[in-house]
Amino acid sequence: MPLNALEEYRWPAPDCGAMAEPKKGIVMAGETKGVERPLSPHLQIYRWQVPMLTSILTRVTGNALIVTSVLVIWWLGAAATGEEYFNTVNGIMTSFIGDIVMTLSVLGVWYHFLAGLRHLYYDAGKGLDIPTAEKLGWACLIGSVVLTILTVIIV
């Protein structure tokens, strides 16, 4: 399959005329020159946009939070084990590096929280026009930072 999507991009393929349906029995591009199907633009040539960035961040934060889960359950387990081990783990989690990791975790949680609420709003069929979607994206980005600062102050 050609890597340079822009040069090879032809749709509909000239020898197919106006026919938009792919022919049956064609296995994959490269086996035939007859049908050149459109290829998705690659990330490297795709302009970054707020809805795209905020969608990717939702996935990144959601999956990265497994690290936080392991740390929190390690801490709980240490508290259940005994005072000595608890003091060790509690000390690590409140050290300088621990503080950085936990603050980033809080940022990740709040971001995923706001983006999740946005997802529920989108799923209800609302806020899908481009200006609203861009505003909601900024709301997630700015809101997560504000909530993180508030959490650090209050908690």
Binding site: W75, M93, M102, V106
Partner: peptide, 10 residues
């Protein structure tokens, strides 16, 4: 949970 855990941590 953030409130409960944040208060207990440390």
């Amino acid at each position: 949970f953030i409130y409960i855990f944040g208060k207990a941590l440390g």
